[in-house]
């Protein structure tokens, strides 16, 4: 049972990451491979302000989101100059830069040593130190982010995003300043991803740079593509499948240490099969 709760917490964290990334990849059509950068920024800001300045988790969460949004605003303005494959490559570059900041800015991040002893959330005497109550908190955040994404999706704003995805130049002729829409979406997605980082830092109570490298971004992208581009329910489903599937392998008889290694293989294989037979993902509306 405790292990199931642990898995569900991980599903929650990846659901938030996938929901946020879906705004950028699924709705706006930008193949962004640096979700782990904002995930990491949220985690590091939360860890630092909680351990060094004694911030409450919830305040730390907000600070992390704001900081992530700020970075997204600056980076988004630069990234928007790129298109297609160049955009994707530039985003990888961004992730590598952020990763090296985590790794090398040792006075702040403690570099490869990582930051231990990050407290669990508590508010008004209510503590989320045991995993079950933490799961409830994480689920609440998933619901919050889910509703926000749905709100965006169903608004006129969401329709404009889809139109940008389909034909950026054509939509601009009808009076839309495409850059503003892209930037706004990017900033919101970065803030949401930072929430996932805050949850992660406080849940594991320890973070180090290795969690936030490009391979993690590819994993999050795989979650979005598997679940289905431009589908919020798909993002949650994708997170559940990709987090739980390697565990399921154990039940069908793979030894535990091999099953753990299988995560990479499984999601790689799933993606290849998916692209061949169902490019819109499990629940998606849109093909890349």
């Amino acid at each position: 049972m405790p292990y199931v709760i642990h898995l569900l917490i991980m599903v929650s964290i990846y659901s938030i990451l996938a929901l946020s990334l879906n705004l950028v990849v699924g709705f706006t059509g930008l193949v962004f491979v640096a979700a782990a950068a904002f995930f990491g920024i949220g985690a590091y800001v939360t860890a630092i302000v909680m351990t060094s300045f004694g911030f409450n988790f919830f305040l730390a969460c907000i600070v992390g989101a704001l900081f992530s949004a700020l970075i997204a605003f600056a980076i988004g303005a630069v990234l928007s100059k790129f298109r297609g494959d160049y955009y994707t490559l530039a985003s990888v570059g961004f992730n590598i830069i952020i990763y090296s900041v985590f790794l090398n800015w040792q006075t702040v991040t403690r570099g490869p040593l990582g930051i231990p002893g990050i407290p669990r959330p508590s508010i008004f005497g209510l503590s989320f130190s045991d995993n079950f109550s933490f799961l409830i908190l994480a689920s609440l955040l998933v619901i919050l982010v889910f509703l926000a994404c749905r709100f965006i999706e169903q608004s006129s704003f969401g329709r404009v995003l889809r139109a940008i995805r389909e034909d950026e130049k054509a939509v601009s002729v009808f009076g839309y300043e495409v850059l503003y829409f892209k930037l706004a979406t990017f900033v919101v997605a970065a803030a949401f991803s930072a929430f996932a980082g805050s949850l992660y830092a406080s849940y594991i109570t320890f973070i180090d740079p290795s969690t936030f490298f490009v391979n993690e971004s590819i994993f999050i992208l795989a979650v979005v593509i598997l679940g289905g581009l431009a589908s919020n329910r798909g993002a949650v489903l994708g997170a559940a499948v990709l987090v739980l599937l390697p565990e399921a392998l154990r039940f069908v008889g793979f030894p535990p240490d091999i099953a753990a290694q299988m995560r990479q293989v499984v999601y790689g294989l799933l993606l290849v099969i998916l692209m061949m037979y169902r490019p819109q993902g499990l629940m998606g509306e849109y093909k890349l």
Partner: peptide, 18 residues
């Protein structure tokens, strides 16, 4: 140049809304 993977109605609404 249409917004291909969008319904016909949304192709029109998108030039009407805010």
């Amino acid at each position: 140049r249409l917004f291909e993977q969008m319904p016909v109605l949304d192709n029109v609404l998108v030039v009407l809304t805010e």
